[in-house]
Structure formats: structure tokens, C-alpha cells
Amino acid sequence: MAAALQARGLAKRYGALEALAGVDLEVGEGELVGLLGPNGAGKSTLVKIACGLVRPTSGSAEVCGARAGTREARRSLGYLAELFRFPGWHTADEVLALHQRLAGSLGGAAERGELLDLVGLVEARKRRVDAMSKGMQQRLGIAQALVGQPPLLLLDEPTSALDPAGRRTVRGLLEELRRRRVSVLLNSHLLSEIELVCDRVVILARGRVVAAGRPEELARPRGVEIDTDAGTQTFPRASRDDAPRLVADLIARGERVYGVRVLSTTLEETYLSAVGEDSA
């Protein structure tokens, strides 16, 4: 079966500026992939190429086996842009109805109700967009991206305008999408969010993939910490496998052991180390 999204050697130049310099990326069926990188790393360009808003200079991108940008590819995806707006005179329900007609969705009122419920906007279904807060509009944007049950969702900074409660709603929504086997490429600056929900993380810097893998794979060991009656002792070169031996040695020396922690770098540390000076 074709991957939900597959990019091979994807490059994009805007005049002298190289936004993408040969990116390989794959989002498998039902996989939730987080896209990280500093401003200007090429994340939004990558997402825009995938949904056909931007044409690549070279390389290729496929959505569910169809060339990105084609009607077949667009039929298979839902997209939430980083900067978007819906007509202020439409109600939440009308926005979804318009996108249902454009997407050829036959879900009708039942689908609209379910989507508004999913993003916590049922009470606001008759509210006009220009009377909604930015956070509500962003949640409506996510609901819009889900119209027609696309197998791939491209979310470009979906929580940038949300308060902590709104972010939690979106995290729950992403968990629900994983349960439904929907593939998601999530572009976000919020490392904690990516770490909490994503199966895999891809870090971009200067238009290139500088690190990729499962969050736990990206973490590097940082030693072992053991709490004893003499205080906390750190063994920076030790690994998880060394912990039983270290504890045994301490007990043999007559010390009491109260706790053992295997240390590893956080995603934030991995990210900062991968993007280097670009993060400044």
C-alpha cells in the first residue's frame, strides 16, 4: 500500500533563497509525524508542496500514490494552513457545508455535527466566523480539514492560537485520529505537544532533514542518577544496563539506595543540538 505522504529529493527555490534542499520524508498509513524546525527551515513550504499550493523546483511528492497537487491527491487530504481565514459572514455550519460541497462529501448535517463536536464547537455552530475568537476559528479550521474523512491530514501550526485547554482538545483529537488510522503530518513549534502525540519526529533546518526518528530513538543516554543516604550520585557515562551493577556496588559498600533514574536528553535538547545556531 502507498504511503499517505512520500517526498523524494524535494527542493524548492524562491529566487536566491533555497527553502528546501532535497528532503526525503514519509508518513505511513495511520502514522502521526511531527515536523519540527526553526523559522525559515522549510516546514510550511514542505506542507504547501504536499497539498499543491506550491510547485517544487525538483524532486517529487505523492499523496496516497497520486502526484501532489493533482485532483486525486487533493481528494485524499485535509489541510489547515498556518495563516488562513474563513469568510466572516459564514457561520461555522456554513463553512463546513461549503467545504463539504467542494470536497464532494455526502456526510451532510450529521458529519458537520460530528466534526463540530470533535473540536468542541457544537454550541457555536450558528455563530458567524467574525464573532469567533482566533482559537475558535483555529478549531473550526481543523474541523474543515477533516471534512470528507481524508486519509491524510496536513496541519500547519494548528495550535498556535489556542489556549492550554484548546491545545488539550487538539491533542485528544489527534489521539482520536490515530485511533481512526488517519495519517497526520503535524507542523508545530510546540515540542512538548509533538513529544506527547507523535509516533515519529522529523527535524528540518536550512531546508534539510537534520534528524528523524521516534522520540525515544532521538533521545541520547545521559547517564544514571542514584539517590543514596550520602546524597545523589551521578554516573554520566553509565547506561540503563549498568544500573543494577552500580546499585549492587553501592550496597556492597554499605550505602542505602533510595532511588535510581536513567537519564536521557529531552526532545528539546535533541532539537537544539540538531538545529544548532538556527534555533537562536
Binding site: 497539498c51 499550493l53 485532483r71 487533493r74 494552513a81 495563516l83 488562513f84 474563513f86 469568510p87 470536497a103
Partner: peptide
């Protein structure tokens, strides 16, 4: 520029 077009263009409309 106002972000109104992108949600429409990504639909399978052409």
C-alpha cells in the same frame, strides 16, 4: 494574502 483562498484551492476543484 488574506488567507481566504488556500482552504478553497486545496479542495479537489481545480
Amino acid at each position: 494574502e488574506r488567507g481566504l483562498l488556500q482552504p478553497l484551492v486545496v479542495r479537489p476543484v481545480g
